[in-house]
Design a protein around this nucleic acid. Structure first.
Length: 488
RNA sequence: GGGCCCGUAGCUCAGCGGUAGAGCUCCGGACUUUUAAUCCGGGAGUCGUGGGUUCGAAUCCCACCGGGCCCUCCA
């Protein structure tokens, strides 16, 4: 029986229902209980014999002549339904002939326990709510084909409860972030996704076009520059939780659109932000998973503060033997890096080589939450210099499960220094580096009006959810991850 | 963009030069407390697509399409 035949069979059943005067797609249905609420009633002796009405999708059917058992799944769980010809009548019972797995049914009845003790709803009336025209995934093995899981996520969600739980966790993480920041007096804002120049990060943007304005636009690659304008405008604590877009490859760590949290707080510096990150993320871990320690593979991640704070220079020196502070120019550092196995291309500047040393030698080892602090100025065109060392900036990134999850710094608010940094980025771009920060004249004008000292934070929400749920691929925490166009 | 692996029934998979298979799903029959219900019977396929080698290709070779993992790219 091919797929088309299975669908035709279900269409035939649909017609039989219609012929019998049954609407297979009624507009509404009143249920009195979810499956979870109904099951809870069985523990309550005073509720015995009360009539309950539930509704859900049929996930299993065991028919035994004049009686049948159905499993009904709804948003709260699953409940077994017992349908007896004697109770519902001969005609309604015969209806089951035209019911399939995947159909939705409303059931009114009373609760009892079977002889094996399973709480069960004995049906008095059945109502067809939806006739499904395609068969659901098979029940034993469930759905494992990764491509189908991603392309038809609804089937994945129906068949695999652990997948459902990941996305429930994701929703709770986002809600907890909002609660945390709102409670600290932050204001949630929304800034443009379509921008004339996409700034705030070193990444290639997607390009699009506005017909009426006859103008090329870019999808944002970061939230940063607009949020800082708001700090200039007097909002002292702002944040945005939003989708950003980067025109780059797809892998277990990267999806071209992902969710970023960025927050800015006047009169905070990067030390304050480290304390806030520890408090926020360990708190979220507790709220979402029930504990600040979360299982990860055969070990566990401990989110309890404080997290180690390691200067980037020390971390790279320890893991690769390269002391970038001892190599003040790109050629010298390139030599040292190549001895440590990093093949730097000629177009790479000093910052890019340091970044590569970090990615290759340090990042994979940072399983437990760790702050790396004090980055070289070449890598951080929007961060404020350290007062005692102008080659370094007051910046940290934090890592969990061997992946970068967040980035923060004391914001550069000196407009003249900022202009100089953009000019340096432009020189790197001219030298062949495609991923540099683009100068944003409008942003510079804002800074020239004066931005208070401030600390800014960015957190990759997808990767945070990965760390909290033990997911090994970013596609497991994005409902509809980027894929190539389907065949056929 | 590169390397390795994968694509066979609606689902999960076996078969790896000689007539396309299993379990579940599906259809018919029996069955009033089943729960991977059971028992009897029956259906189900462009073996990802296109070329090639061969008497003969799901099986070997090449290209393409799609997916996975690893590299590259990427805060």
């Amino acid at each position: 029986m091919g797929e088309d035949d299975l669908i035709q069979q279900r269409k035939d059943k649909l017609e039989r229902l219609r012929t019998a005067g049954i609407d297979p797609y009624p507009a509404r249905f009143e249920r009195t209980h979810t499956s979870e609420q109904a099951l809870a009633l069985l523990g309550d002796a005073s509720a015995n014999d009360t009539s309950v009405t539930v509704a859900g999708r049929i996930t299993a059917m065991r028919q035994m002549g004049k009686a049948s058992f159905l499993d009904l799944q709804d948003g709260s769980g699953r409940i077994q339904v017992y349908v007896k010809q004697e109770s519902v009548g001969v005609q309604p019972y015969a209806l089951l002939r035209d019911i399939d797995l995947g159909d939705f049914l409303g059931v009114r009845g009373t609760l009892f326990r079977t002889k094996t003790g399973e709480p069960t709803l004995e049906a008095q009336t059945l109502t067809v709510l939806v006739k499904a025209l395609r068969p659901p995934p098979e029940k034993w093995h469930g759905l494992h084909d990764v491509e189908v899981r991603y392309r038809q996520r609804y089937l994945d969600l129906l068949a695999n409860p652990e997948v459902r739980n990941i996305f429930i966790a994701r929703s709770r993480v986002v809600a907890a972030v909002r609660r945390f920041l709102d409670a600290r007096g932050y204001l949630e804002v929304e800034t443009p996704i379509l921008q004339s120049t996409a700034g705030g990060a070193a990444a290639r943007p997607f390009v699009t076009y506005h017909n009426a304005l006859d103008r090329q636009l870019h999808l944002r690659i970061a939230l940063e520059l607009y949020l800082k304008r708001l700090v200039v405008g007097g909002f002292e604590k702002v944040y945005e939780l939003g989708r950003i877009f980067r025109n780059e490859g797809v892998s277990t760590k990267y999806n071209p659109e992902f969710t970023m949290l960025e927050s800015y707080e006047a009169y905070a510096d990067y030390h304050r932000l480290m304390a806030m990150v520890e408090e926020m993320i360990s708190g979220i871990a507790g709220e979402v998973t029930g504990s600040p320690r979360v299982p990860y593979g055969d070990t566990e991640i401990d989110f309890s503060p404080p997290w180690p704070r390691i200067p980037l220079r020390d971390a790279i020196l320890e893991r690769s033997g390269v002391d970038f502070a001892a190599h003040r120019d790109a050629p010298s550092l390139r030599d040292a890096a190549s001895r440590a196995g990093v093949q730097a291309e000629p177009s790479w500047g000093r910052g890019k080589i340091i970044d590569e040393l970090l990615t290759l030698h340090v990042e994979p080892h940072l399983l437990q939450p760790t702050f790396l602090i004090d980055y070289p100025i070449e890598l951080s065109p929007l961060a404020k210099r350290k007062p005692d060392n102008p080659d370094l900036v007051e910046r940290f990134e934090f890592f969990i499960c061997g992946r970068e999850v967040g980035n923060a710094y004391t914001e550069l608010n000196d407009p003249i220094d900022q202009r100089g940094r953009f000019e340096e980025q432009a020189r790197l771009r001219a030298a062949g580096d495609e991923e540099t920060e683009l100068a944003d004249e409008d942003f510079l004008i804002a800074l020239e009006h004066g931005m208070p000292p401030a600390g800014g934070l960015g957190v990759g929400i997808d990767r945070l959810v990965m760390a909290l749920t033990g997911a090994s691929s970013i596609r497991e925490v994005i409902l509809f991850p980027a894929l190539r166009e389907a065949q056929r």
